[in-house]
Amino acid sequence: MTIRKRPPAQDIGRILGGKMAPEDFIKMMNVTELNCDTLEKIGEDEAEDFVTVCESLGDAAFTYAEKNEQEGHLETASEYYFNANALYRLGDYGIKSIDEEKYRIYGKLVDSFKRSKQLMEKQEVHYIEIPFEGKEMPAYLLLPENAPKDVPVVICVVGATGFKEENFIIAETVFNRGAAAIIFDGPGQGECNLNRELYLTENNYDDAVLAIVKYIKNRSDLGNKIGLAGVSFGGYLATSAACRYPEEFSGLVVRGGCSQLDQLTMHSFAGIDKFYMYNFLNKFNVETLEEAEAISHKMTLDDVLKNITCPVLVQHTEEDPVIGTVGAKTIYQNCSSKDKEYYEISGNVHCGNNEAQKTCTYGIDWLLDRLK
């Protein structure tokens, strides 16, 4: 068996920015990559399989959470269910094929996350399902207690490989500032892709976002000021929805996004040509790279960016090795918004994960300043 290593797209900022417990991070690194006491690299013949280690540590955290739940220590149980979820997320990310191992670990990921949020006493997290294309999209709604009926809502749009559980910190940042948030898996993402046969097409994600908007408008406890916050490929998807339905949105934040899908899928990364195109085979439900490329080539926003008139914040690193910088600058330059900002992050870590907290909080504060 080939020993699997930490995926190159899972940089340290991304891992810790997702709120993995430091103790679990140290345990994981100590046997797969780096002795955190001596800072010496783990030799190739000594390194353990990354996915196996993540699942094993996740199982240990899950067992400890169960024990504390049985003893009535619900806050501790919630924290350790979340720790388990963080480890399962990394394990899942390291599995390239869609097989029994993938389904098993992904199932644990979703289950442990739900258990964590169900036990939280300081945060109301509602699991909801939103009808779309004859199926349902799973989502989490965060609604502050005693929020006014006109509370603004941020729709959090996730990317190609980080789904609603990994990017939950974005929705949580919105909630902590007194606004409501919905974070969901849409076509080609997370649960929709693996368990619901809800695949991505050239333009169906726009209508998936519109389904979320309609859900918001049908609730009397949510306001009609709606913002979009998209991260990575989610930056493209959020921008696309704002181009197609500009009248629905009062603000847009694009973090690490692009104006053409090819800027992501045709880009080389970690020494691999078309690194991310392989991830889109199952998202598009096709079998060959040629089929995926044909769809990717059609997914471009350059001609419709002018439709966007709401406030726009584009956050992007100086040199993004995953997606480049051309698409982000094109969004900023070509949208029609009078209120817009290009927020450049030093370095070359995708989505500004080297400054994950500052990048996330700046973006949400900027958006809520406009929605409120």
Score class of each variant (00 low, 15 high):
G13N: 13
G17N: 10
K19D: 09
E23Q: 09
M29L: 13
N30W: 01
V31G: 07
T38I: 01
F50D: 10
V51R: 10
G58D: 11
D59P: 00
F62M: 02
G72V: 10
G72C: 07
H73V: 05
H73K: 15
Y80R: 13
G91P: 02
I95P: 00
D111N: 11
K117W: 14
Q118T: 14
Q123L: 13
I130R: 03
K135E: 03
M137E: 02
A147F: 12
V151C: 10
V154P: 00
K164R: 15
E165P: 06
E165C: 05
E166P: 03
A171E: 03
E172I: 02
T173C: 09
N176A: 10
F184T: 05
G186M: 00
P187D: 08
P187Y: 09
G188T: 13
R196S: 13
L200F: 14
Y205F: 14
D207S: 14
K217R: 14
N218D: 08
I226S: 09
G235D: 06
A241Y: 10
C243K: 11
R244G: 03
A270I: 05
I272A: 00
K274I: 00
N282T: 15
H297Q: 12
K298H: 11
N307L: 02
T309H: 13
T330V: 01
N334W: 07
G347N: 09
V349A: 09
C360P: 01
I364H: 01
W366V: 02
D369A: 10
D369G: 15
